[in-house]
Structures are given as C-alpha cells and as structure tokens.
C-alpha cells in the first residue's frame, strides 16, 4: 500500500504564453502508516503536490501509482481514490453547508453510496474522533465557534474512513490551544487508526514535534526528504528558500558558538532541555 510519484510534472496553462511550471520531476514514495510533514514557502508548489495525491489535479507528465495502480489509467476508479485519500483543505470550515453538523458530516459517506446505518455510524465515529461534543450534532455548523467548525469539517473528511489523510495547514488561524487540539487529534488518528498522515505546515515547531519524515518543496522540486533531524541540519539552506529551523535549533547553534559542547541537532524543546542538562552534568 503506497502512493508513488514517478517523474511527475505539472504545468499551468501548458502550451500558452501563460505556461507556468508548478511541479517538476517529482519522485516520491509514501508508505502505509507514515506521518509526513510537507514544508515549503508559499507558492513553492506544495498545495499543487498534495492535490495530485487524490487526483484533483492531473499531472502534465509522469505517473502516479496508488497501491500499484496507475491512477491515470482509463479504468482506474477515481471516486474510490478520493475516499481512500482524504483531503482537508486550508480553512476547511469554509466548505460546511449542512443544516446540522451531523448532516454535513454525513455528506462524504453518502457520496460513497453506503447504507443509512453505516452512514450514521461513521458520522458519529468521526465526530467522536475529533472530540466534538455529541450535543453539537444537531446544531447548525454556522453556530459553532471557529475551532469547533474546523473540527466538524475535519470530521466530514474522516467519516469517509480514508487510509491516507492529507491536511493543508489545518491549524491556520487557530489560537495555541486550538492548534494543539487539532494536532493531537491528528496524532491520535495516526496512532490509533493507523491512518497515513500528510501534514502541510508553515510551523517548523509543529513539524518538528509531530512528524517522522519531512518533504521540503522549493520551486516545484523536492529539495529535502528525510527525518526532521536530517532536514533541519540544513537550516541555512532552508533560510535561503524562505523557511527556517525550529527556534530551539537556532538556540543550540548559538550555544555551540558560545563554547558549549552541545549537540546542535535538537529540534524539540524536550531534546534541547535534555541536551543542555547533560551539558551541565544534571
């Protein structure tokens, strides 16, 4: 079970004067159960990249394989790909439309053609997974608070029981506690249900805290692909492409420069704390 990008390129308006290469020669393999962070400057092509994963954009050249099947084959079932690879867009609350939260969450499973019992089972399961209180089910989604709306929208995608879940900046605009809630529920989905997670984020700190692998995109190319520690070693190069390393990584470099014998690869507060304490012999 995997998603494979084989020399994928994507151009906007190919063949016209407005031609614009958004992705160029992307080779990528995403295995089952991974937790991947995608980082890249605004306009680097990361949104275009994820929209290829469930066939919302079609590559101008190259092939994408889902579980070994070429998704551009004429007999490939695109509808089932979209239920297998769920996608939570940026500001997903902007897609809510149901008269009640429950009705909205049912939209995806209904489109999958499931029977009524299965639909409501999945809807309630999804609402529970995002920790939305049950009494909010019959409320209009437009009456929820910002954070609750976001959760309801995510539930709408989870209800389709995707085996891969892509989230495009799911914490944008939320306050710190709201951010932690969303990230933790994503982590739960990954750990409890074994869902493959692909998280697009602008926050290097969040990426460092949660993901196992980082794919860094720059100008439509994959610039780095590795564990957070490996990728954040290149903090100077990351800055050149408009990104950065987590704040603690910079601190560790500052300390090293100040003569401390510390490991500069720390990317989380916990790692930094332990490393500094080790340095002081505590």
């Amino acid at each position: 079970m995997s998603i494979i990008f084989d020399h994928v390129a994507f151009k906007y308006n190919p063949g016209t004067t407005y031609e614009n290469t958004a992705l160029d020669d992307i080779n990528l393999k995403i295995d089952d159960g991974e937790f991947i962070g995608i980082i890249g400057h605004t306009g680097s092509g990361k949104s275009t990249l994820i929209q290829h994963m469930n066939g919302l954009e079609k590559a101008t050249s190259g092939t994408i394989y889902y579980n070994g099947q070429d998704i551009y084959d004429s007999d490939f079932d695109m509808a089932s790909l979209r239920t297998e690879v769920g996608m939570v867009f940026q500001y997903p609350e902007n897609q809510l439309f149901g008269t009640t939260v429950y009705e909205d969450v049912c939209f995806g499973p209904k489109n999958q053609g499931l029977d009524g019992k299965e639909i409501s089972l999945r809807a309630f399961e999804a609402l529970r997974a995002v920790h939305l209180p049950e009494e909010l089910c019959d409320v209009s989604p437009f009456e929820l608070s910002g954070g609750q709306k976001r959760k309801a929208a995510i539930a709408g995608v989870i209800a389709m029981k995707p085996s891969v879940l892509i989230l495009d900046e799911p914490t944008a605009g939320l306050d710190p506690a709201g951010r932690d809630e969303i990230l933790n529920l994503i982590k739960e989905l990954h750990e409890k249900n074994g869902v493959t997670i692909i998280l697009v984020s602008h926050s290097m700190e969040d990426v460092a805290n949660y993901v196992d692998r980082i794919v860094c995109i720059d100008k439509g190319h994959i610039k780095y692909d590795g564990t957070p520690r490996e990728v954040f070693k290149n903090y100077k190069e990351l800055e050149e492409i408009g990104l950065s390393a987590p704040q603690v990584t910079y601190l560790m470099h500052d300390l090293k420069r100040a003569g401390f014998h510390v490991d500069t690869d720390c990317i989380t507060i916990e790692e930094a704390r332990n490393e500094i304490l080790r340095c002081f012999g505590i």
Partner: peptide, 29 residues
C-alpha cells in the same frame, strides 16, 4: 489557552530541572 515562545518555554523547563534561571526569558541571546 495561550502559549509562550519556545525559548521562554525551554528556559522554564530548565529552571524546573534545577538550573538557576530567572522567569520570563524572551530571547535566544
């Protein structure tokens, strides 16, 4: 429902672990 900057949080953690650090460290420097 708020947070502190990473540096401040790290300083806070180090203090809890026994280092003599004042509260409210704001910058790396």
């Amino acid at each position: 429902r708020l947070d502190v900057p990473q540096v401040t949080l790290l300083a806070h953690e180090l203090k809890k672990a026994g280092l003599d650090i004042a509260d409210g460290v704001l910058t790396r420097e």
